[in-house]
Nucleic acid binder design. Structure first.
Length: 306
DNA sequence: TTCCAGGAGAGAG
DNA sequence: CTCTCTCATGGA
């Protein structure tokens, strides 16, 4: 199966930017588990070659994939709207084509509950062990992986079993969220229909889901591009580059929304991954990129909006 | 060995 | 509202 028109798309940056924890690169192909099947995806130019471990109906599989990879959104247009300064411009150039995935809701809820006060490589390890232990085995040629565990599977475990997978103190958060989904108290299908503020508020009713994790779920699963997950890196980025002072989370949120607008979630993802790819992200040369343009860019945005 | 990581909850002020 | 302390884990 192929998608021929993957223009302005980078499989590498999309799958390696810390929004999904389930992809592995082997040579030039990416292997991952998406909603109960193993996918192998390979990008050559603007063509994506996709293979699945299960038999797929092309009429539904292609739209499913396009939505997962956010290929049906006019991302270049939206990125133009956040291209406000020379620093952001450099991030956009380096990571051009990175898109924000639309991932399955339960897996995203569970994954980002596990992400708190944790690092990406360790989150990946926890999710792999949970899937091995509580998911179902999938095979694709010689490649073996496991589906993400259902709410039923995780809700029925003990915290000791979750701890054995390395979840740490987040075990109770995960188990309780899973049990709430099973009982019907936590309605994921309803959350999908909600606006961004409603969905965020509903998600934050769960123990272990605060503002940052709720924003990750809204952005990486529900397609709410106004969501702005502020982790230690995003805080550091805005304090160092844009505000040039220590700032509270509400201050950062207010500035970022005013500066980048409705697609601040996309802007955030480019900045987040750029500083992870680039050790000298805050050297004098980089700092000068914003100094010269932040004021003008803010004025420009305001005049465009009016 | 200490520090850090896509933080959140509980408590105090 | 803001600040602080704690939480389990393992790689750097």
């Amino acid at each position: 199966m192929q998608i021929q028109d993957a223009t302005d798309f980078s499989l590498k940056y999309t799958l390696e930017s810390g929004q999904s924890f389930r992809w592995n690169r082997i040579d030039d192909a990416y292997y991952g588990v998406v909603e109960g099947r193993i996918l192998k995806i390979c990008q050559v130019g603007t063509t994506l070659r996709v293979e699945s471990s299960t038999t797929e109906d092309k009429t539904t599989f292609v739209p499913f994939l396009r939505h997962y990879l956010d290929l049906d959104r006019d991302v270049p247009k939206l990125l133009a709207a956040v291209d406000n300064d020379a620093y952001m411009h450099r991030a956009l150039e380096k990571l051009w084509g990175m898109r924000i995935l639309n991932q399955e809701l339960w897996e995203t809820v569970a994954s980002f509950i596990l992400s708190q006060n944790n690092n990406i490589s360790r989150i990946r390890g926890i999710i792999r062990r949970l899937s091995e232990r509580f998911g179902e085995q999938l095979t694709f040629g010689g490649y073996v992986d496991y589906s993400f565990p259902s709410p039923e599977a995780l809700g029925a475990t003990t915290e000791a079993e979750l701890l054995a997978c390395g979840t740490g103190y987040r075990a109770s958060y995960l188990r309780e969220a899973a049990a709430a989904v099973v009982s019907g108290e936590f309605e994921l299908t309803a959350v999908k229909e909600m606006s961004y503020p409603e969905a965020k508020r509903e998600l934050m009713r769960r123990k272990g889901i605060g503002e940052k994790v709720a924003d990750c779920i809204c952005l990486f699963s529900l397609g709410h591009l106004a969501a702005l997950p502020i982790d230690v890196w995003i805080k550091r980025i805005f304090e160092t580059l844009y505000l040039r002072r220590r700032a509270t989370y509400p201050e950062i949120r207010e500035f970022a929304h005013g500066y980048f607008g409705d697609s601040v979630g996309y802007a955030q993802q480019y900045l987040f991954h750029y500083v992870h790819e680039c050790q000298d992200w805050a050297d004098a040369e980089h700092l000068s990129l914003i100094e010269t343009s932040v004021t003008a860019a803010a004025e420009n945005r305001k005049s465009v909006a009016n």
